[in-house]
């Protein structure tokens, strides 16, 4: 006789449990947390460099930089100055998980942090499955990539709250269309916020900085309970 035993459990429930602990710890301290994801080379580290330049004097920013090998990104961010930076070298793993982030956070001072940004491993597939305790995922895409990427990687674009199109200074030098990428992204995720900017020229960066500043100030305000 066969018997069916209902389990109905998420496969990554252990990761989700650890992510919930991280989320609690951050929310108690009113620290908004972003999980920054993209393909390799879209400009995650560059975006964080211009972000530090604009905000590091005003706010205490915590950065966790994930890479498969090397601490190159973390070193760039340390050189940019003004932030607590932790590196996670995954040694081959294609994504960060909540356990790695929890370990990195243990070495950071959360009492002096206004914003946490986690720079994920460059990959639009695997990181979409792992909750890191962030408030939102931000997906970065650049004008040297295909504008059909939202259709090719729907899991990531569905889970993201914002898409940032980087390298807009290169628009016109490739077949990438800003309008097409926006339409493709919105067909996957109608609620997606979209910004476009160039880390290299600084064009459009103001709107990103204004959005982040607002996020930090909103988080500090006591919630109306």
């Amino acid at each position: 006789m066969t018997e069916q035993i209902a389990v109905e459990k998420k496969i990554l429930s252990e990761n989700d449990r650890l992510a919930a602990e991280i989320r609690d710890a951050l929310q108690q301290r009113r620290i908004p947390a972003l999980n920054l994801v993209s393909s390799p080379g879209s400009g995650k580290t560059s975006l964080l460099e211009v972000t530090l330049k604009a905000l590091a004097r005003r706010f205490s920013i915590g950065l966790i930089a994930g890479d498969v090998q090397t601490e190159n990104d973390a070193q760039r961010l340390r050189a940019a100055g003004g932030a607590q930076v932790q590196a996670i070298v995954t040694n081959g793993a294609c994504h960060l998980d909540a356990r790695m982030v929890g370990r990195a956070l243990a070495g950071m001072n959360l009492e002096r942090m206004d914003l946490l940004v986690i720079e994920n491993v460059g990959n639009l597939v695997c990181p979409s499955s792992y909750d890191l305790g962030e408030d939102m995922k931000i997906v970065l895409i650049s004008a040297t990539e295909g504008d059909d990427k939202p259709l090719k990687y729907p899991a990531m674009f569905r889970r993201a709250a914002m898409m940032i199109v980087n390298k807009t200074d290169l628009l016109g030098f490739s077949d990438f269309s800003l309008e097409r990428v926006q339409n493709n992204a919105r067909s996957i995720n109608p609620d997606l916020q979209i910004l476009s900017l160039s880390c290299r020229t600084g064009s459009g960066v103001d709107a990103w900085i204004a959005w982040l500043t607002d996020l930090i100030l909103q988080a500090r305000r006591p919630s109306a309970e």
Binding site: M1, T2, E8
Partner: peptide, 30 residues
């Protein structure tokens, strides 16, 4: 990947599900 409502033809469609990653149930016995 065609996101058009088959009933009213509207192109504003919200996606639900498709991202399940779950252990549903086990079967025991002979």
């Amino acid at each position: 990947m065609s996101l058009v409502c088959p009933q009213c033809g509207c192109e504003s469609v919200r996606l639900q599900g498709g991202d399940e990653l779950e252990i549903a149930f086990l079967e025991t016995g002979e």
